[in-house]
């Protein structure tokens, strides 16, 4: 193998039967940072995340990668939400990097402020990462995030998208998929679950700001996530990565199924993985083995009603969404 790093790898090694990209078959130098004892460990063990939390996994890989490529020179700002709560139960903290939490809706601006200080002090080495859930990003933090994109502040914003306000007890956000049951979109009445033809897809909105780099990633392919974070850190200016992070509590799924569900979301076409630079799509991840959307839906209680014969129209709508993604992002 002659490649410099995993980012340039063209051959992928999948673990038998799981489609998970494996470490063990790779040369040591190409293995994920998590595979070594010397890993940077941005988020320490002992935090209070639920079993099978996709966000804890995604955050650790993303930030460890950022630490590695910046030689541990990162400062993180965090929106209020699960990640904030489960990492910092007073007086403990799981963070081994400088970390600040201010409010639910302002993390993008707090991060911009940190970047402004670094600029004023002439520190171009230290980099800034903002993190929020989908509610803190697509709803309450949207204005601040758009401002960050507008000014092209030197911040990587990572959105951990689990499709709802899980920390407050699973309410609908503008990233909640159509049809999904949440505590505020219960499967009752004529249109059970979250309404269709609503919501927003923030990666596309980020692309419309023509910022240097936008990517979507998923916790089932951590090599890909690491590669995208590394790539994001190679740009200056505003960058946005949205990571699909299954939430056993909110999705009504088994903790052991987090990776599997993340993969199924991608393989069904409902979670497109792609990259864009300066507003232009540059790459999308092909679906390896396409699966029917119902296979993905039936592993989650939040979609149980969609699979009932009476709601076949909802299932058709979700299928159409997958088809649209496949076409739009050339996933096949």
């Amino acid at each position: 193998m002659t490649q410099k790093n995993t980012a340039e790898q063209t051959v992928k090694f999948y673990q038998t039967g799981t489609f998970t990209v494996g470490n063990r078959l790779l040369d040591e130098e190409f293995r994920t940072v998590q595979a070594t004892e010397e890993r940077s460990n941005s988020i320490d063990s002992g935090h209070r995340a639920c079993q099978g939390c996709g966000q804890a996994l995604g955050a650790r890989y993303a930030l460890d990668t950022a630490m590695r490529v910046t030689n541990n020179k990162i400062i993180a700002a965090n929106a209020t939400g699960c990640l904030e709560v489960f990492t910092t139960p007073y007086p403990e903290t799981a963070w081994s990097i400088p970390w600040v939490h201010s409010l639910f809706g302002n993390v993008a601006s707090v991060a911009s402020g940190i970047a402004a200080t670094l600029k004023a002090k002439g520190d171009s080495e230290t980099r800034v990462i903002a993190q929020g859930g989908d509610g803190g990003t697509t709803d309450i933090g949207f204005a601040c995030l758009s401002g960050l994109f507008d000014r092209n502040d030197d911040v990587l914003y990572i959105c951990y998208d689990n499709g709802g306000y899980m920390n407050t007890g699973v309410q609908r956000s503008s990233a909640t998929p159509g049809g999904a049951r949440t505590a505020t979109t219960m499967p009752v009445g004529e249109h059970p679950g979250s309404s269709f033809n609503t919501g927003k897809f923030l990666p596309a909105i980020a692309m419309a700001h023509e910022i240097p780099y936008v990517a979507t990633a998923s916790v089932h392919d951590l090599h890909d996530l690491e590669r995208k974070v590394e790539k994001a850190m190679s740009f200056r200016g505003a960058r946005y990565i949205q990571i699909n992070v299954p939430c056993p509590l909110g999705w009504g799924s088994l903790p052991a199924h987090t990776i599997k569900l993340a993969r199924m979301g991608v393989e069904s076409g409902l979670v497109p993985l792609f990259e864009a630079e300066y507003g232009e799509l540059t790459q999308s991840t092909k679906i390896r083995y396409q699966i029917p959307v119902e296979d993905y839906l039936k592993a989650q209680r939040r979609f149980a009603h969609v699979l009932k014969p009476a709601n076949v129209a909802q299932l058709e709508t979700i299928r159409a969404l997958a088809e649209k993604n496949i076409k739009r992002y050339a996933l096949l």
Binding site: G105, S109, A116
Partner: peptide, 15 residues
């Protein structure tokens, strides 16, 4: 809201 939040980040970073 962004302005004061920006101040919070900047001040916390030592400016």
């Amino acid at each position: 809201f962004a302005s004061m939040s920006f101040c919070i980040g900047a001040s916390a970073a030592g400016a």
